[in-house]
Design a protein around this nucleic acid. Structure first.
Length: 506
RNA sequence: CGGGCUGUAGCGCAGCUUGGUAGCGCGCUUGACUGGGGGUCAAGAGGUCGACGGUUCGAAUCCGUCCAGCCCGACCA
């Protein structure tokens, strides 16, 4: 960094996308790897983004009738064994606690002692332990629907991990509901899917497709799995949230039964749905550029950073006071359920370095105030959705009156930009050779960014789906919710009900 | 769990082939000069060279065992 680099982040997205991603996380000081393999330390800037996501989502869950609760981290092994497909899906990635005590070992270290009678599994998801509680809580149709959400950490022992996108431990929310009828449970599954899609679009400025997973991609134990899928800037798909209709699979396995209005004892219908800290990975890969993170204002921990330029002034206190006054006038303004977050950065460091540090953190609006600006009663302003060096002097009163509008404008710009990017790289593809060409990596490029979403008919043959996955690394991301038009499957020549969304994915 | 690679200062690395008491860049500390841009100069702090054992007068360097991490595969929010 001694020599002036062209971009704040090296390598750039086009040079090496995965490495660019890691560098953005590091430059914005969001998270770091930890001594524990596969686990991350989420640093204050990253965690603040998560807290904002939590606040908005939690409000949406409450608004749709859910209550928060908390269930144990440890799940008795026999609970997991109750639902056959569920066990099979998660068994390979479970962390298991087998002892409850440490004792001094022969060579000075500590060795586990006190073996547990029954091993405890660290939750990879909580359907089983929550189902156990539901079986006791639900007695009558009057107890339904039961709408519960939990904010928690879960552990899935992944082989290969990446900050925010796939870590062995991650933070998430998992909603679990029980209903009296199949129809109501199905409706609820879709309702929560739409909550996720709304959140992604409105708060994250991340357009997503909604659809159903094929059997191959379905949640273990679910009857149907629905998802939101976003397109990242390397044109790969990111599954950003899932909503499952569990039918009576779990209620039968765990005896969640109620006495109906008609006096009949019957099994409840359940759903579950979740989003995780992976959303932060999606946020980065949707908006960040070669100068670092770009935050949609609605989720930004800081909306406006004010940097006093005092070195030229005989009276630096005057400038600082002026900045505080601007900050006060901004902080009283409401922006989507909170007040504007304004930070005055008067750290004693060189201007360039300070300015770039906020560029890399993705703060929506940066303001510099020096003696000249103060004399003119104006603010030297930069927006993160525009090039770092594009700055504009705006009269103070005008800026204060329009700050909210400017943030809304940035939010909208980010969304529209992401939407046109996705549309630009989404194509209807009708022959197998075009399909292969679309997803084939250009020759001689070690870190190719290519492909996108292919809208292609498919007959639904599971073996063919598997073959395409093995050959090209391309999977069905979702079966779109809309009606669609019938056509012909280019892989088998069989009839197809509608086009599916195909892509490489995270 | 298979294949490849790497462990030396907070981070990134050189030194190892041809053993001789540890070096560079960034970062950090202090001071000066700077100042609407990711500085300049000077002076400093910081390492039992992944662990254990062997060979040797002497091991970061040679040998052995172990441990950890990274990359590529199979699996995944």
């Amino acid at each position: 960094m001694a020599k002036a680099a062209k971009t704040a982040i090296t390598p750039t997205r086009s040079e090496n996308y995965p490495e660019w991603f890691q560098q953005v996380v590091r430059a914005a000081d969001m998270a770091e790897t930890s001594p524990v393999r596969g686990c991350m330390v989420i640093k204050p800037w990253g965690y603040a983004i998560w807290e904002n996501m939590q606040r908005v989502l939690d409000g949406m869950f409450k608004a749709t009738g859910h209550k928060n609760a908390y269930f144990p981290l440890f799940i008795p092994k026999r609970f997991l064994e109750k639902e056959a497909e569920h066990v099979e899906g998660f068994a390979k990635e479970c962390a298991v606690v087998t002892h409850h005590r440490l004792e001094a070992g022969p060579d000075g270290g500590l060795v586990p002692a006190g073996e547990l009678e029954e091993p405890l599994v660290v939750r990879p998801t909580s359907e089983t332990i929550i189902g156990d509680a539901f079986s006791r809580w639900v007695e009558s149709y009057r107890d339904l629907p039961l709408l519960i959400n939990q904010w928690a950490n879960v552990v899935r022992w992944e082989m290969r991990t990446r900050l925010f996108l796939r870590t062995a431990e991650f933070l998430w929310q998992e909603g679990h509901t029980a209903h009296a009828t199949e129809e109501e449970a199905r409706e609820h599954t879709i309702r929560m899917l739409n909550v996720y899609a709304d959140f992604a679009r409105d708060s994250m400025a991340m357009p997503v497709l909604t659809g159903e997973k094929t059997a191959a991609e379905r949640f273990p134990g679910a009857v149907e799995t629905f998802c939101i899928e976003g397109m990242m800037q390397d044109r790969k798909a990111l599954q950003a949230g899932t909503s499952h209709f569990l039918g009576q699979n779990f209620s039968k396995a765990q005896d969640i039964m109620f006495l109906g209005e008609d006096g009949e004892r019957q099994h409840a219908w359940t759903t579950s749905w979740g989003v995780s800290t992976r959303l932060i990975g999606g946020l980065i890969m949707t908006h960040a550029d070669d100068d670092g993170l770009v935050l949609p204002p609605r989720l930004a921990p800081v909306h406006v950073v004010i940097m006093p330029i005092t070195f030229k002034s005989d009276e630096p206190e005057k400038i600082i006071n002026y900045c505080h006054k601007v900050a006060d006038d901004l902080r009283v303004q409401a922006f989507h359920g909170r007040h504007l977050e304004v930070e005055i950065d008067d750290r004693d460091m060189r201007g360039g370095e300070k300015n770039w540090s906020w560029v890399k953190k993705g703060v929506p609006i940066r303001i510099e105030v020096g003696p000249r600006d103060m004399a003119e009663d104006a603010l030297f302003t930069a927006r993160r959705d525009r090039p770092a060096k594009e700055k504009e002097s705006i009269p103070r009163a005008e800026f204060i009156a329009n700050a909210i509008q400017m943030l809304e404008d940035i939010q909208q710009t980010l969304h529209d930009r992401a939407l046109s990017f996705r549309e630009e790289h989404t194509h209807e593809i009708d022959s197998e050779s075009d399909f292969r060409d679309f997803f084939a990596a250009p020759k001689g490029d070690p870190t190719p960014v290519h492909g996108g979403f292919a809208l292609t008919h498919f007959c639904g043959d599971r073996a063919m789906e598997e073959k395409i996955k093995n050959d090209m690394g391309v999977t069905v991301r979702c079966v779109p919710m809309d009606e669609g038009e019938p056509g012909t499957c280019p892989f088998t020549g069989q009839p197809s009900a509608k086009r599916l969304v195909w892509a490489k994915s995270y």
